[in-house]
Every structure is written in structure tokens, then in C-alpha cells.
């Protein structure tokens, strides 16, 4: 009589857990150097980040946020990058085939913080927003690195259309 009860609770418990991770968020390890210095500042300790699924449920993302997305080149791989431009923005690219790119409708432009050591929109172009899976909201491990991830964009990477507006206001 013990075994059926165990299986019954498993049958109910697994879907509840999976649904929680799928809608609220989960913790994932960051691999690679592409987001240095924000994530994985040294190669010894790897950061674990909380990926907030709830925040992107309507695909509302803003510039400067760190997001995780399915790689367009390999659907089995997840990549973590910083969102530089949303649809309609004009981006000055770093080594893409065109110097200026207007981000098309429903797309975004993502880049790693570690310029030159990252595979990002500068190599595969604008990314469909449907590939965005979560927003990285904080580092949870190791404890010494515990912090919220700030939404920030270096002034050199602000989209061209915003820069112009910024100067006009001044």
C-alpha cells in the first residue's frame, strides 16, 4: 500500500514543481566569459543566477536588462546576453556585415558585455523576441557575489536614435 501512495504523490508533485519553475523562474549556472565583468568575473568561480520567467511572460523587455534566450544557431543551447536595442532602434554594430542596423519588428539586439569574446547579435543579427526565455534578476551563488543585476547600458552602446534625442534635449 505504500508504493501506490508514493507514485500518486509523485504524479501530482512533479507537475506542480515543473509548473512553478516554468512560470516563476529557476536558478541556472552561467558558463563562459561572454558576460564579464557582470557575470563570471573570474574563471575559477561560476555564478548561479536566478532566471525570472514571470517578468518576460508578455515579452516586455527593456534596454539594459540581462536576458537568457534560446540560441538561434543551436535550439538546444541557452545563451545569456544584455539587451541593447528593442524594435525600431538603430544600432551601431561592432563588426556585423552592416555598420548600422535598424532592429525589425518583433526583434531585439543582444550583446555580451565582454566585447570581442562573445557570440551575439554582432555575428547572427537581430533576434526574434520569441526566443527570449527569461530575465536574469540576481546572482544567488556564491554568497560573496550575492547581488541584484542592474539594468544598465554603457553610454557607447546606447542606440543611435536615443543618443540623438538625448543631445537634442541638452
Amino acid at each position: 500500500m505504500r508504493l501506490p501512495i508514493f507514485f500518486k504523490s509523485l504524479l501530482v508533485g512533479v507537475p506542480i514543481g515543473v509548473t512553478f519553475f516554468d512560470t516563476v523562474g529557476y536558478v541556472a549556472r552561467v558558463d563562459g566569459v561572454s558576460m564579464q565583468p557582470s557575470l563570471n568575473p573570474d574563471t575559477v568561480n561560476q555564478d548561479y543566477v536566478f532566471l525570472n520567467r514571470w517578468a518576460v511572460r508578455f515579452y516586455q523587455v527593456s534596454r539594459g536588462e540581462i536576458i537568457s534566450l534560446t540560441s538561434p544557431k543551436d535550439p538546444g543551447q541557452m545563451i545569456i546576453k544584455r539587451l541593447v536595442g528593442i524594435e525600431g532602434d538603430v544600432i551601431q554594430t561592432l563588426g556585423y556585415k552592416k555598420e548600422y542596423v535598424k532592429v525589425p519588428q518583433g526583434h531585439c539586439w543582444v550583446e555580451g558585455d565582454h566585447t570581442g569574446h562573445t557570440l551575439d547579435s554582432n555575428s547572427f543579427g537581430p533576434i526574434a523576441l520569441g526566443l527570449v526565455t527569461a530575465k536574469a534578476s540576481c546572482i544567488v551563488w556564491p554568497p560573496s557575489r550575492w547581488q541584484r543585476l542592474k539594468s544598465e547600458l554603457p553610454s557607447s552602446r546606447i542606440p543611435v536614435n536615443l543618443k540623438r534625442k538625448f543631445f537634442e534635449e541638452k
Partner: peptide
Amino acid sequence: IARSPSNPR
């Protein structure tokens, strides 16, 4: 069935 590339919703 896929998400539209031009509108994720």
C-alpha cells in the same frame, strides 16, 4: 506551430 518572428504574442 511556431511563434511569429515579427510578433512573439
